[in-house]
Simulated scan of single mutants.
Amino acid sequence: MTKEDCFYLGKIVSKYSFKGELLIKLDTDEPESYENLESVLVDFRRQLIPFFIESSQLHKSNLLRVKFEDIEEEADADELINFEAFLPLSQLPPLNENQFYYHEIIGFKAIDARHGDLGEITGVNDQSPQALFQLKHPSGKEILIPVNDEFIQKIDKANATFYFQTPTGLIDLYLD
């Protein structure tokens, strides 16, 4: 399995106890969805390695306390700190019609109420304080639109199209 077949679950940030327990900082709005996992894939030295979970429970808001099978000592747990954890895309919880995962909207057409065809969604930059849709306009220019419910009029998943109503002047910043 490759990273392209997976989604980022979180990062192993610290040990919890001297018995080999670890804390994974989850990258999700719904940490409770991941409380009863059987296993995770850890990006260990550039390879996804399955680690089976003996026990897990939520610890504070977005930390998952896990006890992996065969990790019995602090030294073993130390080796896993700062590595990223992934799950197969098939384990993503289902979403309702108005929700989406960033990876599934790449390639969607973008239509704005004022400007019409904005081109194609090429990605979502979620590394900044405000997540941004990245679009490639037919002119070749890049357009960035904040991921904000107020700007999204409709999502037509069947036709792979996003309908936006962007604030006056936003698109003009990129096209003028």
Results as ranks from 00 to 15, higher is better:
Y163I: 00
E54D: 13
V124K: 06
N125F: 04
S14W: 10
T28Y: 08
E30F: 11
K60W: 11
S56P: 08
L41F: 15
K60A: 13
E74P: 09
A110P: 03
E74M: 09
L95E: 05
Q57L: 11
I81T: 06
E30P: 00
P167N: 05
K19W: 09
L173Q: 12
Y163P: 03
Y34N: 02
P138W: 04
D126N: 13
V13N: 10
S56Y: 01
D70K: 15
I105Y: 01
S17Y: 09
L22S: 06
S55V: 00
L63S: 05
K141E: 03
D126K: 13
K154C: 06
L89P: 10
N159I: 01
G140F: 01
I145P: 01
Q130M: 13
L173F: 04
A131M: 03
L87Y: 01
L48C: 09
E4L: 11
T28W: 09
D126I: 05
D70E: 14
M1R: 07
S55I: 00
E54R: 15
E54F: 14
K136V: 12
D27N: 15
A85C: 12
L144E: 13
D76A: 14
P129G: 09
L92M: 12
V42E: 07
S17G: 15
F108M: 03
D172Y: 05
T161L: 08
L80N: 06
R45C: 10
I105N: 09
P146R: 02
I155N: 00
R45T: 10
G169C: 04
Q47T: 13
Y16L: 09
Y102K: 09
E38A: 12
L132I: 10
G116M: 11
D78Q: 15
D76M: 12
Y8D: 11
D172I: 04
S39M: 15
S55F: 00
V147C: 13
K136T: 15
G20K: 02
F162M: 07
E69K: 14
R65I: 03
I171T: 08
F44E: 11
K157S: 03
F68K: 06
Q165V: 00
P129V: 13
I171V: 14
Y16D: 13
C6F: 08
I111W: 12
Q47G: 01
Y174F: 15
D43A: 09
G10L: 10
T2S: 15
L58Q: 09
R65G: 08
T168K: 14
E84L: 03
H115V: 03
L80F: 10
Q127K: 14
V124F: 02
S90N: 15
K60N: 15
I152C: 04
S33N: 15
K60E: 13
F68N: 00
Q127T: 14
D176A: 06
E150T: 15
N159V: 05
L92T: 10
V124S: 02
V124R: 03
T28C: 10
L92H: 07
Q91S: 12
E150F: 14
P31Q: 10
F108E: 03
L135W: 05
E97S: 07
G116L: 11
E120P: 07
D43H: 11
P167K: 03
I143K: 04
A75C: 04
Q130F: 13
G140E: 06
K3E: 11
